[in-house]
Amino acid sequence: MSAAQRSRLMSRISSKNTGPELALRRLLHAAGYRYRVHGILPAQQVAQLHSLHPGIPLRGGKLPGSPDLVFSARRKAIFVNGCFWHGHDCPVGQRRPASNTGYWNPKLDANIARDQRNLDNLAALGWESLTLWECELKTMDDVLCRAASFLGPVRIAQRGATAQGPPQGTGVG
């Protein structure tokens, strides 16, 4: 593969709405979890975090590292990381390009350092985080168990409930 072909190929790799991320979103939504995407927080929560932790940057109203899924009421975030780009300890993550190492090694090392810095900042803000790796998303049952264990039970909102009692047709009452 020529340098121009490789460059064109690498430029087409997206950092948002990747296949593994979309698969996880579908899985969690079907299980009943509701979330925000790409680290975005409600404005009120951003203001509160800014006032409590002025030294931690919340650029554009987003959590550090722009987690792929944000569960703001639970104060939990999930990252879906590509093994190659974020240095996972699987075979794909441990393999580094043999050519142009002066570019790739510092870039990949900086990604790993930045990821750790973002996780540390999230913890300082009082948020828990979970990193799911691209290679782990091949067994979705295991991923759902791991994510559900991290997130806790699904919260079911009762729509139409009034002060008089539960909504009609629930069989309660």
Rank of each mutant, 00 (worst) to 15 (best):
A73W: 13
I156V: 06
G169H: 11
S11R: 15
N105D: 12
E136L: 12
L108T: 07
A98P: 04
K16L: 07
R95P: 01
M10P: 01
R6M: 05
S66N: 15
R74T: 00
I112Y: 14
L130N: 10
S66R: 13
A157E: 10
P106F: 15
A98S: 08
D109Q: 11
A3F: 10
F71E: 01
V143P: 00
N105G: 09
R34T: 13
G82D: 01
V80H: 12
P64K: 03
A148Y: 14
S11Q: 15
A23K: 04
L137D: 02
R6A: 08
A23G: 07
G169K: 03
Q158S: 08
R96F: 10
I40G: 04
N121E: 15
A73I: 07
R36M: 10
Q5K: 08
H50T: 14
R74I: 01
W133F: 11
F79L: 05
Q94G: 15
L24P: 02
V46E: 05
L122N: 05
G39M: 04
C135A: 05
S149V: 06
R8M: 07
E134K: 14
N111H: 15
N81R: 15
L144V: 11
P97R: 09
A113T: 10
D109R: 15
Q116E: 13
H29G: 06
N118C: 09
G169W: 05
L122H: 06
G126C: 01
N118I: 01
L119K: 05
L49Q: 00
R59P: 06
C90G: 08
N81C: 15
P153V: 07
R96E: 12
R75K: 04
A98N: 07
P106A: 10
R34E: 12
L144R: 00
I56E: 06
R159L: 11
G87Y: 13
K107L: 13
A47I: 12
L130I: 11
M140S: 06
E134Q: 09
V70S: 03
H50M: 15
G165H: 08
P54W: 10
C145W: 13
W127L: 01
V143H: 02
I13K: 11
L108H: 11
R96W: 14
F71K: 00
L125T: 03
L119Q: 07
T101K: 04
R74Y: 04
C83E: 12
W85T: 09
C145A: 06
P57L: 10
A157Q: 08
A4R: 08
F84N: 12
P153I: 13
A43S: 15
N111F: 08
I112K: 11
R36C: 12
F71T: 02
A3I: 05
L24I: 06
W133I: 07
S2M: 04
G169D: 02
F84C: 03
P64A: 02
I78A: 00
G93S: 03
G82M: 05
G160Q: 00
L125S: 02
D89N: 15
M10I: 06
Q94D: 10
A77M: 03
T162A: 09
R114D: 08
S72K: 05
L137G: 01
W133G: 02
R159F: 09
Q45M: 01
L125P: 03
G82Q: 09
L9P: 01
E134D: 10
Y33H: 13
R75C: 04
S66Y: 13
T139G: 02
E136P: 14
G152T: 02
R8D: 06
S129T: 04
